[in-house]
Simulated scan of single mutants.
Amino acid sequence: MAAAATVTGTSGLVGAAVAAALDAAGWAVRGADRAPGRWTTVVGDLREPRVRRSALAGADVVVHAAALHAPHVGRVDEREFRAVNVGATEGLLDDAQRAGVARVIYISSTSVYGHALVPADRAVWVDEGLEPRPRDIYDETKLAAERLVATADAASVTLRIARCFPEPLPVLATHLLHRAVGIADVAAATVLAAARHTVTGTFNIAGPYPFTRADCPALHDDAAAVITARVPEVAAAFRDRNWPLPRTLDRVYDSGAAAAALGYRPVHGVHQVLRTRQDP
Protein backbone atom coordinates (compact mmCIF):
# COMPACT_ATOMS: atom_id res chain seq x y z
CA MET A 1 0.00 0.00 0.00
CA ALA A 2 1.38 3.41 -1.01
CA ALA A 3 2.32 5.93 1.64
CA ALA A 4 -0.16 8.78 1.82
CA ALA A 5 0.61 12.48 1.53
CA THR A 6 -1.75 15.36 2.18
CA VAL A 7 -0.84 18.51 0.27
CA THR A 8 -2.48 21.85 0.99
CA GLY A 9 -2.82 24.55 -1.62
CA THR A 10 -3.12 22.01 -4.45
CA SER A 11 -5.01 24.40 -6.72
CA GLY A 12 -2.08 26.81 -6.67
CA LEU A 13 1.13 26.75 -8.69
CA VAL A 14 3.41 25.21 -6.06
CA GLY A 15 0.88 22.88 -4.45
CA ALA A 16 -0.23 21.43 -7.79
CA ALA A 17 3.37 20.82 -8.87
CA VAL A 18 4.17 19.15 -5.54
CA ALA A 19 1.07 16.95 -5.70
CA ALA A 20 1.90 15.83 -9.25
CA ALA A 21 5.51 15.03 -8.30
CA LEU A 22 4.47 13.05 -5.23
CA ASP A 23 1.94 11.12 -7.30
CA ALA A 24 4.61 10.33 -9.88
CA ALA A 25 6.89 9.13 -7.07
CA GLY A 26 4.25 6.62 -5.93
CA TRP A 27 2.56 8.50 -3.09
CA ALA A 28 -1.21 8.41 -2.60
CA VAL A 29 -2.01 12.13 -2.73
CA ARG A 30 -4.90 13.94 -1.06
CA GLY A 31 -5.16 17.65 -1.82
CA ALA A 32 -6.89 20.51 -0.04
CA ASP A 33 -7.61 24.03 -1.26
CA ARG A 34 -10.29 26.70 -1.12
CA ALA A 35 -10.66 26.44 -4.92
CA PRO A 36 -11.21 23.34 -7.06
CA GLY A 37 -8.27 21.94 -8.97
CA ARG A 38 -6.83 18.85 -10.65
CA TRP A 39 -5.21 17.63 -7.40
CA THR A 40 -7.75 19.04 -4.94
CA THR A 41 -9.92 16.37 -3.34
CA VAL A 42 -11.04 18.43 -0.35
CA VAL A 43 -12.41 21.88 -1.21
CA GLY A 44 -12.66 24.20 1.78
CA ASP A 45 -10.98 26.69 4.07
CA LEU A 46 -8.22 25.25 6.27
CA ARG A 47 -9.34 27.52 9.07
CA GLU A 48 -12.28 25.16 9.47
CA PRO A 49 -11.51 22.08 11.63
CA ARG A 50 -13.73 19.77 9.56
CA VAL A 51 -11.79 20.68 6.41
CA ARG A 52 -8.46 20.00 8.10
CA ARG A 53 -9.62 16.68 9.51
CA SER A 54 -10.95 15.55 6.15
CA ALA A 55 -7.74 16.56 4.40
CA LEU A 56 -5.53 14.74 6.92
CA ALA A 57 -7.44 11.45 6.99
CA GLY A 58 -4.97 8.60 6.56
CA ALA A 59 -1.96 10.84 5.89
CA ASP A 60 1.59 9.77 6.69
CA VAL A 61 3.04 13.12 5.58
CA VAL A 62 1.53 16.58 5.22
CA VAL A 63 2.98 19.18 2.87
CA HIS A 64 1.64 22.59 3.80
CA ALA A 65 1.83 24.95 0.83
CA ALA A 66 -1.43 26.89 1.24
CA ALA A 67 -0.94 30.53 2.22
CA LEU A 68 -1.56 34.14 1.39
CA HIS A 69 1.43 35.38 -0.58
CA ALA A 70 3.47 38.53 -1.17
CA PRO A 71 1.14 39.88 -3.91
CA HIS A 72 -1.64 39.98 -1.29
CA VAL A 73 0.28 42.49 0.86
CA GLY A 74 -1.62 45.76 0.92
CA ARG A 75 -4.72 44.14 -0.56
CA VAL A 76 -5.60 41.78 2.30
CA ASP A 77 -6.07 42.85 5.90
CA GLU A 78 -3.19 41.92 8.23
CA ARG A 79 -5.60 40.03 10.49
CA GLU A 80 -6.51 37.85 7.53
CA PHE A 81 -2.84 37.19 6.87
CA ARG A 82 -2.35 36.04 10.44
CA ALA A 83 -5.49 33.92 10.41
CA VAL A 84 -4.55 32.14 7.16
CA ASN A 85 -0.78 31.90 7.39
CA VAL A 86 -0.40 31.38 11.15
CA GLY A 87 -3.76 30.38 12.62
CA ALA A 88 -4.57 27.76 9.99
CA THR A 89 -1.03 26.40 10.22
CA GLU A 90 -1.33 26.00 13.98
CA GLY A 91 -4.68 24.23 13.59
CA LEU A 92 -3.28 21.96 10.87
CA LEU A 93 -0.35 20.97 13.06
CA ASP A 94 -2.62 20.23 16.03
CA ASP A 95 -4.92 18.11 13.90
CA ALA A 96 -1.96 16.38 12.24
CA GLN A 97 -0.69 15.36 15.65
CA ARG A 98 -4.07 13.93 16.60
CA ALA A 99 -4.27 12.09 13.27
CA GLY A 100 -0.87 10.49 13.81
CA VAL A 101 0.86 12.21 10.90
CA ALA A 102 4.55 11.36 11.19
CA ARG A 103 6.10 14.12 9.09
CA VAL A 104 5.38 17.75 8.22
CA ILE A 105 6.91 19.66 5.32
CA TYR A 106 6.28 23.38 5.30
CA ILE A 107 6.65 25.40 2.12
CA SER A 108 8.05 28.75 3.19
CA SER A 109 9.85 31.45 1.21
CA THR A 110 13.26 33.06 0.97
CA SER A 111 11.30 36.29 1.36
CA VAL A 112 11.48 35.77 5.14
CA TYR A 113 15.07 37.04 5.07
CA GLY A 114 13.53 40.44 4.34
CA HIS A 115 15.76 43.40 5.14
CA ALA A 116 18.76 41.07 5.47
CA LEU A 117 18.71 40.78 1.67
CA VAL A 118 19.70 44.41 1.20
CA PRO A 119 23.39 44.60 0.21
CA ALA A 120 25.96 46.99 1.63
CA ASP A 121 29.24 46.72 -0.28
CA ARG A 122 28.68 43.23 -1.74
CA ALA A 123 25.93 40.90 -2.85
CA VAL A 124 24.38 39.05 0.10
CA TRP A 125 25.23 35.36 0.22
CA VAL A 126 21.97 33.87 1.48
CA ASP A 127 22.38 30.64 3.37
CA GLU A 128 20.41 29.43 6.37
CA GLY A 129 22.81 31.16 8.75
CA LEU A 130 21.53 34.56 7.62
CA GLU A 131 19.18 35.93 10.29
CA PRO A 132 15.71 36.72 8.87
CA ARG A 133 14.61 40.35 9.23
CA PRO A 134 10.96 40.44 8.08
CA ARG A 135 9.89 43.54 6.19
CA ASP A 136 6.12 43.05 5.82
CA ILE A 137 3.16 41.01 7.04
CA TYR A 138 3.88 38.24 4.55
CA ASP A 139 7.42 37.76 5.85
CA GLU A 140 6.25 38.02 9.46
CA THR A 141 3.54 35.40 9.11
CA LYS A 142 5.63 32.96 7.10
CA LEU A 143 8.38 33.17 9.73
CA ALA A 144 5.85 32.72 12.53
CA ALA A 145 4.50 29.61 10.79
CA GLU A 146 8.05 28.29 10.38
CA ARG A 147 8.50 28.53 14.14
CA LEU A 148 5.27 26.63 14.77
CA VAL A 149 6.39 23.88 12.40
CA ALA A 150 9.84 23.68 14.02
CA THR A 151 8.27 23.04 17.44
CA ALA A 152 5.68 20.52 16.24
CA ASP A 153 5.76 16.99 17.64
CA ALA A 154 6.11 15.46 14.18
CA ALA A 155 9.49 15.45 12.44
CA SER A 156 9.50 18.55 10.26
CA VAL A 157 11.28 20.18 7.36
CA THR A 158 10.83 23.78 6.22
CA LEU A 159 11.70 24.55 2.62
CA ARG A 160 12.39 28.23 1.97
CA ILE A 161 11.77 28.34 -1.74
CA ALA A 162 13.11 31.02 -4.03
CA ARG A 163 11.07 33.00 -6.55
CA CYS A 164 9.23 30.57 -8.89
CA PHE A 165 6.36 32.34 -10.62
CA PRO A 166 6.01 33.20 -14.33
CA GLU A 167 7.86 36.33 -15.46
CA PRO A 168 8.88 37.97 -18.75
CA LEU A 169 11.74 35.98 -20.25
CA PRO A 170 14.52 38.56 -19.80
CA VAL A 171 13.56 39.00 -16.15
CA LEU A 172 13.23 35.26 -15.57
CA ALA A 173 16.61 34.56 -17.17
CA THR A 174 18.30 37.16 -14.96
CA HIS A 175 16.61 35.90 -11.80
CA LEU A 176 17.61 32.32 -12.63
CA LEU A 177 21.21 33.44 -12.33
CA HIS A 178 20.93 34.17 -8.62
CA ARG A 179 17.49 34.27 -6.97
CA ALA A 180 14.86 32.16 -8.78
CA VAL A 181 14.12 28.45 -8.98
CA GLY A 182 12.22 26.22 -11.39
CA ILE A 183 8.90 24.97 -10.11
CA ALA A 184 9.92 21.40 -11.02
CA ASP A 185 12.95 21.73 -8.76
CA VAL A 186 10.73 22.90 -5.90
CA ALA A 187 8.53 19.84 -6.42
CA ALA A 188 11.57 17.54 -6.59
CA ALA A 189 12.95 18.98 -3.35
CA THR A 190 9.62 18.34 -1.63
CA VAL A 191 9.56 14.72 -2.77
CA LEU A 192 13.08 14.30 -1.40
CA ALA A 193 12.06 15.87 1.92
CA ALA A 194 9.05 13.56 2.16
CA ALA A 195 11.22 10.49 1.62
CA ARG A 196 14.15 11.45 3.89
CA HIS A 197 12.46 10.46 7.14
CA THR A 198 15.38 11.27 9.42
CA VAL A 199 16.13 14.75 8.01
CA THR A 200 14.76 17.77 9.84
CA GLY A 201 15.49 21.48 9.71
CA THR A 202 15.21 24.48 7.44
CA PHE A 203 16.62 24.55 3.92
CA ASN A 204 16.85 27.06 1.09
CA ILE A 205 15.57 25.70 -2.21
CA ALA A 206 16.95 27.67 -5.12
CA GLY A 207 18.28 27.14 -8.62
CA PRO A 208 21.66 26.09 -9.98
CA TYR A 209 23.76 29.25 -9.98
CA PRO A 210 27.26 29.81 -11.39
CA PHE A 211 28.60 31.93 -8.51
CA THR A 212 30.47 31.34 -5.26
CA ARG A 213 30.54 33.34 -2.05
CA ALA A 214 33.88 34.81 -3.18
CA ASP A 215 32.10 36.46 -6.13
CA CYS A 216 29.87 38.61 -3.90
CA PRO A 217 31.95 41.83 -3.91
CA ALA A 218 32.36 41.73 -7.70
CA LEU A 219 28.69 40.87 -8.26
CA HIS A 220 27.79 44.05 -6.41
CA ASP A 221 30.27 46.20 -8.34
CA ASP A 222 30.12 44.73 -11.87
CA ALA A 223 27.80 41.75 -12.24
CA ALA A 224 27.99 41.79 -16.03
CA ALA A 225 31.73 41.19 -15.94
CA VAL A 226 31.37 38.29 -13.51
CA ILE A 227 28.61 36.69 -15.60
CA THR A 228 30.73 37.03 -18.73
CA ALA A 229 33.67 35.38 -16.98
CA ARG A 230 31.71 32.61 -15.26
CA VAL A 231 29.17 31.73 -17.97
CA PRO A 232 30.24 33.35 -21.27
CA GLU A 233 27.64 31.40 -23.20
CA VAL A 234 24.89 32.99 -21.08
CA ALA A 235 26.33 36.47 -21.64
CA ALA A 236 26.44 35.77 -25.38
CA ALA A 237 22.84 34.54 -25.38
CA PHE A 238 21.73 37.71 -23.59
CA ARG A 239 23.55 39.83 -26.18
CA ASP A 240 22.00 37.85 -29.06
CA ARG A 241 18.54 38.59 -27.67
CA ASN A 242 19.32 42.24 -26.90
CA TRP A 243 18.72 41.59 -23.22
CA PRO A 244 20.81 43.73 -20.88
CA LEU A 245 23.12 41.97 -18.47
CA PRO A 246 22.53 43.16 -14.91
CA ARG A 247 24.98 45.78 -13.71
CA THR A 248 24.67 44.60 -10.11
CA LEU A 249 23.19 41.63 -8.25
CA ASP A 250 21.94 42.12 -4.72
CA ARG A 251 21.92 38.49 -3.50
CA VAL A 252 22.74 34.88 -4.28
CA TYR A 253 20.74 32.07 -2.69
CA ASP A 254 22.70 29.07 -1.46
CA SER A 255 21.07 25.60 -1.54
CA GLY A 256 24.16 23.77 -0.31
CA ALA A 257 22.52 22.60 2.90
CA ALA A 258 19.63 21.03 0.98
CA ALA A 259 22.11 19.35 -1.36
CA ALA A 260 23.97 17.82 1.57
CA ALA A 261 20.97 16.78 3.66
CA LEU A 262 18.36 15.94 1.02
CA GLY A 263 20.37 15.19 -2.10
CA TYR A 264 18.77 18.20 -3.79
CA ARG A 265 20.18 18.82 -7.28
CA PRO A 266 18.39 21.63 -9.13
CA VAL A 267 18.46 21.35 -12.91
CA HIS A 268 16.05 24.01 -14.17
CA GLY A 269 18.34 27.01 -14.50
CA VAL A 270 19.09 29.81 -16.92
CA HIS A 271 20.67 27.46 -19.46
CA GLN A 272 17.46 25.51 -19.84
CA VAL A 273 15.43 28.68 -20.33
CA LEU A 274 17.83 29.90 -22.99
CA ARG A 275 17.75 26.52 -24.78
CA THR A 276 14.06 25.80 -24.73
CA ARG A 277 12.25 29.14 -24.76
CA GLN A 278 12.18 31.63 -27.57
CA ASP A 279 11.37 35.31 -27.65
CA PRO A 280 7.65 36.01 -28.08
Rank of each mutant, 00 (worst) to 15 (best):
A173Q: 10
A173H: 09
H175D: 15
L176F: 15
L176N: 09
L176T: 11
L176E: 11
L177D: 00
L177G: 04
L177Y: 02
H178R: 13
H178M: 13
R179E: 10
A180R: 01
A180C: 04
V181P: 00
G182P: 00
D185T: 10
D185W: 04
V186F: 09
A187S: 08
A188I: 11
A188K: 11
A189E: 08
T190S: 09
L192Q: 13
A193F: 06
A194M: 05
A194H: 02
A194S: 08
A194P: 02
A195F: 10
T198S: 13
V199Q: 03
T202M: 06
F203D: 00
F203L: 01
N204H: 13
I205L: 11
I205W: 02
G207E: 02
P208G: 05
Y209W: 06
P210Q: 14
F211C: 05
F211Q: 02
T212A: 15
A214V: 12
A214S: 15
A214K: 12
C216R: 00
A218E: 03
L219M: 12
H220K: 08
D221N: 12
D222F: 04
D222W: 01
A223E: 06
A224K: 01
A224T: 03
A225Q: 06
V226S: 01
I227N: 03
T228P: 03
T228S: 12
T228M: 04
R230N: 00
P232L: 11
E233K: 12
V234A: 06
A236N: 10
N242V: 13
W243K: 04
W243L: 05
P246F: 00
R247K: 14
